[in-house]
Design a protein around this nucleic acid. Structure first.
Length: 331
DNA sequence: ATTCAATTCCGCCAAG
DNA sequence: GGCTTGGCGGAATTGA
């Protein structure tokens, strides 16, 4: 799934955000915030972020302000990653075509560059034909319109983001943050991504497959629901935790607990648990030299075989290979 | 990879 | 009367 793991090059990875009018300012601001905060263990900037427009004149947004890009289209020429924020460009949004200066803009992007979109930026990518026959997502509210304009794209509007290797798309607004963190994790490991998430004060890990439809996206402040049970579970990952155990802790029946859990997190209790366990295992693989079997035990995944299975499913890499990628010094 | 028992998921629905 | 609860059971997933 994530092929581009730790980078070997010295120079920062070049990320260019293309401001297509009318650009959604919130979307545009996510990549600089996330990638711009990414620092290596030795304190180096890992990414060089550039905001590009047709020229440097201000780009309109739909919400009463303008954005002045520091770069023109030349910032696309040597980009390693190009990100398209949500926008209202008429061609891609209404006719399914790429028109005007966007044609030239996409011609300038190197073939090897990784393409990403946030929200309705997927329309722009789709208009280039780069999404044909490939899985992608966009904001759920625009899904039907998207299908009409781009029937060849395998759209799944129920997920937060889709990683299809060199083309990655995400759902509305904050899902762009999840996608950027996901890319950070793929490129440089959980440690770097978590540091950035902490800095931005956002949830460090929302899986791409997680539903866009969470009944109650903001946790209850008083924790009178499953929040405290989740916190408790995080401190007991190494122990067997059955659904009944969790429900008991929350003082709810299994049925009610499951229902609330899904409403609050968008995932089932066991899916969430596996998630957390894999994340913990990844952390242990990155920062310790514990044997795989021990990592599996400590993370509550029971056996190396189970760890291998779940790690493979989430990052597509075997445990030792994962450790080697993020711990090049250890051997 | 395949199998298999145990566990979990979730629509349904009667009861608070 | 709308709303939540929680038991039931077939389908799906998990872990070995």
């Amino acid at each position: 799934m994530c092929k581009n793991l730790a980078m070997t090059t010295r120079r920062p990875h070049r990320v260019t955000v293309l401001a297509v009018p009318e650009v959604i300012g919130y979307d545009l601001s996510i990549p600089p915030q996330v990638f711009g905060s990414a620092i290596s263990a030795t304190g180096q900037q890992l990414y060089e972020i550039r905001i590009a427009g047709l020229d440097r004149s201000p780009v309109a947004t739909p919400h009463g302000y303008q954005i002045a890009p520091s770069h023109g289209l030349e910032a696309l020429d040597d980009a390693d990653t190009v990100i398209i924020p949500g926008n209202r460009a008429a061609g891609p949004r209404e006719r399914g075509t790429l028109d005007g200066w966007l044609v030239e803009a996409f011609e300038r992007i190197p073939d090897t560059a990784r393409l990403m979109s946030i929200c309705t930026g997927a329309f722009t990518l789709a208009a280039t034909g780069r999404l044909d026959g490939r899985p992608a997502t966009t904001h759920w509210a625009y899904a039907s319109q998207f299908r009409v304009l781009y029937p060849k794209v395998l759209l799944d509007e129920s997920v937060l983001y889709v990683d299809d290797g060199d083309v990655l798309t995400s759902a509305g607004l904050s899902a762009g943050m999840d996608l950027c963190l996901h890319v950070l994790r793929s490129d440089h490991g959980i440690g770097v991504a978590n540091a950035v998430a902490r800095h931005c004060v956002v949830a460090a890990w929302r899986d791409g497959g997680q539903s866009q439809f969470i009944d109650r996206p903001v946790p209850e402040p008083d924790g009178g629901t499953t929040a405290s049970t989740r916190a408790w579970a995080l401190h007991h990952l190494g122990e067997p935790l059955s659904l009944a155990d969790l429900a008991d802790h929350a003082h709810h029946s299994v049925r009610t607990f499951s229902r609330r859990f899904r409403a609050e997190t968008g995932m089932s209790p066991s899916a969430w648990l596996i998630h957390q366990r894999v994340q913990h295992a990844r952390h242990l693989l990155e920062v310790t030299d514990l044997p795989i079997e021990q990592v599996a035990l400590d993370s509550g995944l029971g056996s190396a075989a189970t760890l291998r299975h779940h790690l493979g499913r989430s990052v597509g890499v075997a445990p030792l290979a994962y450790r080697r990628t993020f711990q090049p010094a250890a051997h």
